[in-house]
């Protein structure tokens, strides 16, 4: 049985497109990536799954239950971390977490223990007022709040914004532990590399439609990088007639291009050139979409 299954799930905000005919099947125990540029419909899909907004067409089921019919029962087993977290400013962190815990049927003592564990791990001060927290610390509250009831399904909507690299690392480890425990994870992001790091499969969404569902292993094989080279002499266009090179721009002392393919193939070619500098970067998704998925 699929943990999440949507069939032609559609949401229009009045005349405006949210998502169109989204078909997703997230299997049990999977870490499923959900990737696309801003405004593509990631949050709309997630918020529809959570019942925050109502679909205008199609259907969706979580744990095999229709989301429009059995909300609370499903949400008992979901942990949700939104991209931007907002909590009650008048509360202290511990009050908020206890309030959050009070909604679940699970054993309160166990939840309390989990709160202590998680906040210790993330270095979160429970006594502080929500209002006084930095953005990153609010995000930590969000993580604890989303995981304290040991949910079977964890839904993350661009979760890493505002977290420093160290905490991000801890957070990813935490997710892997939860996954090992049996939790299924839906991980939405616009950062390809973090999805690559975490996920087994990824759905790519663009302008409200799922344009591709790929295994991460395939994605990595077709690794896309942006190369920027500084050359001593003006490079010859012919040197770059390699499959996978795109958006090639050559000036007197520089060469930039996108490359999608096996890294060894391109580094071998580059090694033949006389370079003064090189940078290889993760292209942003827009670029990838622009040059590969649009065709």
């Amino acid at each position: 049985m699929n943990i999440i299954e949507t069939k032609k799930l559609t949401k229009y905000y009045g005349k405006y497109r949210g998502i169109i005919d989204v078909d997703l099947q997230v299997e049990k125990g999977e870490i499923y990536g959900f990737i696309g540029p801003n405004g593509a419909g990631k949050s709309t899909t997630i918020r529809t799954l959570l019942g925050l907004i109502k679909p205008t067409g199609g259907s969706a089921a979580i744990f095999g239950k229709d989301i429009t019919k059995v909300g609370p029962e499903i949400k008992e087993e979901i942990g949700y971390l939104p991209s931007e977290v907002f909590y009650y400013d008048d509360m202290r962190v511990i009050d908020l977490l206890k309030y959050s815990a009070s909604f679940y049927k699970k054993d309160k003592k166990q939840i309390e223990k989990r709160i202590q564990e998680l906040s210790g791990l993330l270095d979160l001060d429970l006594k502080k007022k929500i209002d006084d927290l930095s953005y990153g610390n609010k995000k930590k509250v969000g993580i604890v709040q989303g995981l304290l009831h040991e949910p079977k399904l964890i839904i993350l909507d661009e979760p890493t914004g505002g977290l420093d690299p160290l905490i991000q690392q801890k957070f990813f480890n935490l997710l892997r532990e939860e996954n090992a425990r049996g939790a299924t994870i839906l991980f939405s992001s616009h950062i390809l590399s973090e999805v690559q790091k975490m996920c087994s499969r990824v759905a790519i969404i663009k302008e409200g439609k799922i344009i591709k569902i790929e295994k991460i292993s395939d994605l990595i094989e077709n690794n896309t990088k942006r190369f920027a080279l500084e050359t001593v002499k003006k490079a010859d266009k012919k040197d770059f007639q390699i499959k996978g090179v795109d958006d090639l721009v050559i000036t007197d002392h520089s060469v930039t291009f996108l490359y999608r393919g096996k890294i060894n193939d391109i580094t071998r070619e580059i090694a033949k050139l006389d370079l003064t500098n090189i940078s290889i970067e993760e292209p942003d998704l827009e670029e990838i979409f622009l040059h590969y998925y649009q065709r």
């Binding site: 918020r47 959570l50 019942g51 925050l52 909300g71 609370p72 029962e73 499903i74 949400k75 008992e76 979901i78 949700y80 939104p82 931007e84 977290v85 907002f86 909590y87 009650y88 400013d89 959050s100 909604f103 679940y104 049927k105 709040q145």
Partner: peptide, 12 residues
């Protein structure tokens, strides 16, 4: 306060 997301994603 934009807390609806928090409240309504709880089992209630």
């Amino acid at each position: 306060g934009k807390t609806s997301d928090f409240l309504l994603s709880k089992p209630v």
